[in-house]
Amino acid sequence: MSEVNKNKKLEPDMRTINEIIDNYVEMESSQVSQLLFKFKPHGTTIGGFREDIWSELFTQIVPKKFVVEQSVFIIDSKGHVSPEVDLAILDEMYTPYIFRKGRLKFIPIEAVAVAIECKSLSASYGSLETWTSTIKNMETSRQSIARINGNIVTGDTGDVPQTQTSTRPILIYCCLGDAHNTNMNLFDFTLQVDLESKKIKIHRNEGIDKLREWYYALNHNDTTVDESLKHDPKSKLDASIDDYQVKRIINNEETEVSLLSFTFQLNQLLMLINNPMWFPHKAYVDLFNKTNS
């Protein structure tokens, strides 16, 4: 390579960047068209069909290290079992299923990165409040043993500050229409199909904004853990999740490219969790041995 070519400054290919944005807009339009498909005599079938569409969406935007499972139950080592979760995003590389047979799946809380509830045109606030609070209150265990490079470590490292003491899933609500507006504050994100504009609107939980707040909410969910054990990221996480919005100008009006924004926002939060907690095999062994007493 000549010295001239080697030092040549590359120019951004904005045409391709704009085409990528266009494809996200087209993908959103296609998803909405499928989600609004109506076939009234078979409501249950249509509900399952819509779950499939949402599942395909999440499969497209999360890294391959994660899998998207439908119709699962989350379990913890204390014996708590969640209501049915429509979609769960989990890392199955290191964490076993507690039980899996056909469509019946019990997944340990330590493995679940995202829990998703899918509803059509209406939903009970009370049932959703129970759903979200049950999942938020499930308990991860640090009773783990694992080999890392050059050492054997345990999940409970005594008085050493940790970046992760107790995780919880990111909670996402997928729904159609504005009848769900009062339910949105129960979730971290809501993907709402607007029936008038035929677009997906992304609503973010206003109670959690800075990445620092997300870090503590997702990695230090257990309020009983001493604050001195929670690693302080200091000034590294001062950005707001709203800083990750992608916008474009159409007819002199600025609009958000919803799915592209959500792709960056969700994956940034997944990077904050990064890996599932080491699986506490002994804690689950103790749970199942309780049946003897």
Rank of each mutant, 00 (worst) to 15 (best):
A111Q: 07
L195S: 07
N137S: 14
V67P: 01
Q245T: 10
V114D: 03
H80A: 09
S133A: 03
I249R: 13
S133I: 01
I202E: 06
N181T: 13
Y216S: 06
E196F: 02
L260M: 15
E129K: 13
E206A: 15
I89W: 02
C174N: 04
D243Y: 12
D159W: 06
S120G: 05
T132I: 06
I20S: 07
Q164P: 03
V114F: 07
N274C: 05
L57S: 10
M271L: 08
D243G: 12
G102I: 08
E129I: 00
F264G: 06
L10H: 09
K101V: 12
I172R: 00
K105M: 12
N181R: 11
Q143Y: 08
A111R: 01
Q31E: 13
W214C: 03
K8L: 11
I109F: 07
G102N: 11
S55M: 10
A115N: 09
I116Q: 01
G102L: 06
P280Y: 07
E196I: 01
V112M: 04
V246R: 12
V153S: 13
P276L: 05
Y125K: 04
T132L: 04
I208Q: 03
E256G: 07
L259E: 06
V67L: 09
I249G: 04
P41W: 08
E139L: 10
T59I: 11
W214P: 01
I200D: 00
I208F: 08
K9F: 12
D76G: 02
F99L: 09
L186P: 00
L128N: 01
S2K: 11
L287Y: 12
Q60P: 05
I98C: 07
Q31V: 15
S120T: 11
I172V: 15
F73L: 15
D178I: 09
G126N: 13
K8T: 10
Q70D: 08
A113T: 07
E227Y: 07
L104C: 11
G102E: 08
K198N: 14
L272I: 09
K9E: 14
N221P: 03
V193C: 03
E129C: 06
K199W: 10
E3Y: 13
V114Y: 07
K119I: 07
L260V: 13
I98M: 15
L269G: 01
Y215L: 07
E69D: 14
S120C: 08
R212G: 01
D222V: 03
I98Y: 06
S235H: 09
I200L: 02
K105I: 14
P276S: 09
D91K: 10
D178L: 08
D188S: 08
Y216N: 05
G48V: 07
V72L: 02
S133N: 10
L287K: 04
W131R: 00
N219G: 01
P169G: 01
M14I: 15
S29E: 15
S71Q: 09
N205E: 07
N23P: 03
V153R: 13
A239Y: 10
S71F: 05
D13E: 14
V85N: 04
T154D: 11
D76F: 04
W214G: 03
N137V: 05
E11Y: 10
V160K: 15
I116V: 09
V112L: 03
I249W: 12
C174S: 06
K40A: 14
G177T: 06
